[in-house]
């Protein structure tokens, strides 16, 4: 693969994003740390409500206000702490250095403007150029995501395009200002399978051409298996396991990862019965003191319910928050949530 994994471009340290609601404080992101290298693809996997989208929005400082606030942590993009930037400075960073592809092109494009205008709007913020050269850039952008006849297509409105085509336009907007990091939040859930395959291949090609760092937010381990180098599994606001894709698939160490992987039916063999996880994730405003998965975990004991486990190293670059790993290895660092 011509893609080269380079230096760390994004480092997130102990990020906490809380939502202050009338039911109490929802700890949507509760102590998430990770780093992302140039050219790397990182998958953040979890079910709805696990905090994966809030993590992504925090990186862009776009958490829904006033309810949500980033209360603690550092987000270092090429050494700059994004949490110390003013809103004006952030506007110069979004799109130019870090950008995002949203889930549903149906709602993320404005129906009353042509796609060309929407591309130009994004480019104009960062490039003070004449109208003609902006249109030129917009056409180049569409060309880059392989939209056929881009000269004609820039004048189209979103409703004149199919779902796959619209998602390409969203992708073109995201990469139009050559960012270093792209966050793709469930980029293909609204697409059909054959269109999804086209789109994922396109993303891979763009990544190879530009050496972009990509974060895939998904609930689907299939996307991780196909696209990612490393993966982070989130549960109830915390990263419960992270590591190299092959390590996670071959030796999942956290019971939640193990359960998730075995509860998905596969195309390649027939199973009689799927493994199913009993119960549901805990409410984020009323989290248990110990391990958050303890109530659903087949191996949970007294200590799991009482104390949150530290991160243990399960292999090189592979950590999991589970007490069962204590005998097997040393704790890498204490990273449990502070009271």
């Amino acid at each position: 693969m011509p893609r080269q994994i380079g230096d760390v471009v994004l480092r997130v340290e102990d990020l906490h994003t809380y939502c202050f609601t009338r039911w109490g404080v929802v700890r949507a992101v509760d102590g998430v740390s990770f780093s992302l290298r140039q050219g790397e693809a990182l998958g953040i996997v979890g079910e709805s409500g696990c905090g994966k989208t809030m993590t992504a929005l925090s990186l862009l400082r776009l958490v829904p206000r006033p309810a949500a606030r980033i209360v603690r942590g550092r987000i270092l993009l090429e050494g700059d702490n994004l949490l110390e930037k003013t809103e004006r400075e952030m506007r110069a960073i979004r799109g130019r250095r870090i950008s995002m592809i949203l889930q549903d092109p149906q709602t993320s494009l404005n129906p009353v403007f042509t796609v060309g205008n929407q591309l130009i709007e994004a480019i104009k913020i960062h490039h003070k150029d004449g109208r003609r050269s902006l249109v030129r850039r917009a056409i180049d952008g569409l060309k880059q995501v392989r939209v056929a006849a881009p000269e004609r297509r820039v004048q189209d409105y979103p409703h004149q395009m199919s779902g796959g085509m619209k998602q390409r336009v969203v992708g073109a907007i995201a990469i139009s200002c050559e960012p270093r990091v792209i966050i793709a939040d469930e980029p293909t859930t609204s697409l059909d399978v054959t269109i999804q395959a086209q789109y994922l291949r396109l993303l891979r090609e763009i990544q190879e051409a530009t050496n972009l760092a990509v974060i895939f937010i998904t609930h689907d381990f299939g996307i991780v298996a196909k696209m990612c180098d490393r993966v982070m599994v989130m549960y109830a606001g915390r990263v419960v396991e992270s590591g190299d894709v092959r390590d996670i698939f071959n030796r999942p160490s956290h019971p939640y990862t193990q359960a998730l992987l075995s509860s998905v039916p596969t195309m390649d063999e027939r199973v009689e019965r799927l493994y199913s996880i009993a119960g549901q994730p805990p409410a984020l405003w009323d989290l248990p003191a110990g391990c958050r998965f303890a109530a659903r975990c087949p191996h949970a004991d007294e200590r799991c319910r009482r104390d949150y486990p530290p991160s243990f190293t399960a292999g090189e670059g592979h950590t999991a928050d589970c007490w069962r790993l204590e005998d097997a290895c040393e704790p890498s660092q204490f990273s449990g949530p502070r009271a």
């Binding site: 796959g164 269109i195 381990f221 299939g222 996307i223």
Partner: peptide
Amino acid sequence: ALFSAALPAHPDIVREEMILSGE
């Protein structure tokens, strides 16, 4: 084509790429 477009269950499963053009 549908089978080749389906996402793999493991990173080591590499399906024969048969990506359909168009929609």
